[in-house]
Design a binder for these strands. Structure first.
Lengths: 151, 151
DNA sequence: CTACAAGCTCTAGCGACTAGAGGATCAAGC
DNA sequence: GCTTGATCCTCTAGTCGCTAGAGCTTGTAG
């Protein structure tokens, strides 16, 4: 009935060190141990780890997943908080998409304009060197926090 | 003529510790120092730092920027390499966009289906708990390396 | 009962910074 | 010339979500 971390790893599709990491950061419980200190898991942990993996695949951060797990343990509560978390994450994803689409536009323009001649006349280099040549709005004004890509 | 790191910071829109970091990783040169060991810069460093900032804003990695800087110092060379770097980066950006768009679709579906009732019936929680409920292709098979978001 | 795969803990590394401690230096005003 | 205080210096450690490796112990199949 009880199985090892390797078996849990295979059954949930999460690497062994990652499971130990999740335990360390409080996403997974500290399971019972054998006399020789090896971890033993049950079906509940497979389900929990699948939940975590799925949430990570959808881009939720570890903090958010901790909250989602806590909420899913309270099935009688209103799911407004769950909804809020998911919507906030969706908004973040949409922001990143917008940001990346604008980067893509600028990159496309750069490579399209490159005449494949010498570096000296290369539009890619020119655009990078001279901020004014660029349509892109990666301003210095707006962004309080960094303004860099991080998308 | 020569100015301090704080002035360079203001003129290029890059924070002081970041400039020192760029020096450490070889993007910026080790500038001359005053008797008291303070860095002194000139106009060339403003231009270089602007180039770096702009490239970072477009999402180029530090390694790629190092190469771009080296190339821009050889204006007689063919710009084929520059072009290749830019195209590769563009392809990466496009991949990230595709990945995020697919995440967005799944998240939208999740929040749209949430009936705003109890956590016990919440679609968001259900989809996270049960992988089968999800259209999304965040496979376990294909991805050799992680398969997680990192977009 | 012996191999040896798989487990254990601990530390360090990734990328691109950011934050803070604790101290030195520079420029301006008096 | 002297003081003040903003700015500079170096160094270490932290961020996030893992991943890699060393060096040792345990579980299990034959």
């Amino acid at each position: 009935m009880a199985f090892s971390i390797g078996t849990l790893s295979r059954r949930a599709g999460v690497k062994v060190p990652t499971i130990r990491y999740y335990e360390q950061v409080g996403l997974m419980p500290s399971p019972p141990r054998t006399d020789g200190q090896q971890r033993r898991y049950g079906e509940a942990e497979v389900a929990r780890l699948n939940f975590i993996r799925h949430a990570r695949e959808l881009g939720f951060e570890v903090d958010a997943i901790r909250e989602l797990l806590a909420m899913s343990a309270q099935p009688e509560e209103s799911c407004a908080e769950v909804d809020r978390l998911a919507r906030r994450h969706l908004a973040e994803v949409e922001q990143r998409i917008a940001r990346l689409v604008s980067l893509r536009t600028e990159l496309q323009r750069m490579v399209a304009e490159c005449g494949h001649g010498r570096v000296g006349e290369c539009r890619v280099i020119q655009v990078l060197a001279d901020h004014g040549e660029c349509d892109h709005d990666h301003d210095r004004a707006r962004s309080g926090s960094s303004g860099f890509v991080e998308a």
